[in-house]
Design a protein around this nucleic acid. Sequence first.
DNA 1: AATTTTTATCGTAATATTGCAATTAAGTAA
DNA 2: TTACTTAATTGCAATATTACGATAAAAATT
Lengths: 108, 108
Amino acid sequence: MGATKTEHFTDHQNEMATMAKALGHPARIAILEYLMTVDTCICGDIVNELPLAQPTVSQHLKELKNAGLIKGNIEGNAICYCIDHTTIDHMINYFSNMTSKIKTKSCC
Amino acid sequence: MGATKTEHFTDHQNEMATMAKALGHPARIAILEYLMTVDTCICGDIVNELPLAQPTVSQHLKELKNAGLIKGNIEGNAICYCIDHTTIDHMINYFSNMTSKIKTKSCC
DNA sequence: AATTTTTATCGTAATATTGCAATTAAGTAA
DNA sequence: TTACTTAATTGCAATATTACGATAAAAATT
């Protein structure tokens, strides 16, 4: 035991959980916010923006990439990172539509 | 090592990461979706809705509560759960505002 | 009072995450 | 070719998460 029982939940629930999990670390929130603020893809210097060692940042970038939230492109010996609009929009829509889906009256 | 270095990030980044982390499991996505669909607070039967044992569900509910996403009220020998609109709205707004903050052009 | 119902907590095993030093890989520059 | 730069990978220790059986706590029912 110890592993998440993904097979018992819908694809959509697993997909949203995967994206939320990827953002479930302040460093990865910081990376995403940084990628959002720059007006072009950024090559490299994410490491200098974060208070973490290079291997640690590399690992966080990998997780964001695995979750589909960012993309990485090889450019010479550097790598150009940017937001993956398709997946991010998918996640944003999920949360944006939440308000209209909440039918619960506050009773607690 | 192994613990998240929260002290290096802003309060807001940590707060968003905490909420995202709480939703980073399909069972907790499922719980939240269930609480959203019912038009009143639900007493108990969340366990019957999920393919997980009662202690496991109780643990997931605790994490959602710790993240501030849901509230629980004692009602006799049962507990009435419902969405915490204040925090959920906070999270929803964060993601809703993302679209306008993304200045990056797709270049990858 | 004894039983049942409902939910939380404890204890524990399996697995996953976080962080980084050391190293590797792969391109660039000298 | 020999450095230098940039980023990924490996290996490992510390910590956290996931899951559930067993048990406890607390109110309701009999």
